[in-house]
Amino acid sequence: MSETNELYQQVILDHNRKPRNFKVLEQPTREQMGHNPLCGDELTIYLELEGDLIRDITFQGSGCAISKASASMMTVSVKGKTLAEAETLFREFHQMVKGELDPETAPNHLGRLTILAGVREFPARVKCASLAWHTLHAALEGKSDPLLIKE
């Protein structure tokens, strides 16, 4: 498979065309905006938390196919997970796209997210794939600009 096809797989293109959980949550527990000023990608993540559980997660925004598909796939994979499980996924995903974790050999919890492993061959695009995850991470940590987080 060529590197282009490796990156732009059908699943990714499908998530780009029909992003899942692509809507505003009316009363989110937390809301976090993420912005990549270099390319103008922008998204907002809405979280409904129940104790330790991510009960619902949605997003809105605009960006390239990789950032949009990654955000869409992220919402699917963390919905219903605990905060600790989501943090583990964040860490493993980050390591995978940076080429520090090979999902084919190292044990991991990534599941379908490994479809985005191809991005590690495109250093300029790693930020696109990880924007949604960094935004989620910031929302869970509650560390970033409080103006952007509603609790």
Binding site: S2, E3, T4, L7, Y8, L38, C39, G40, G63, C64, A65, I66, F122, A124, R125, C128
Partner: peptide, 22 residues
Amino acid sequence: EIHPHDIGTILDQEGVAIRAGH
């Protein structure tokens, strides 16, 4: 419906260097 960064990445795979961005 195609973001310029996706255009830039695929063009690069074809050996064509352009700029994508603002």
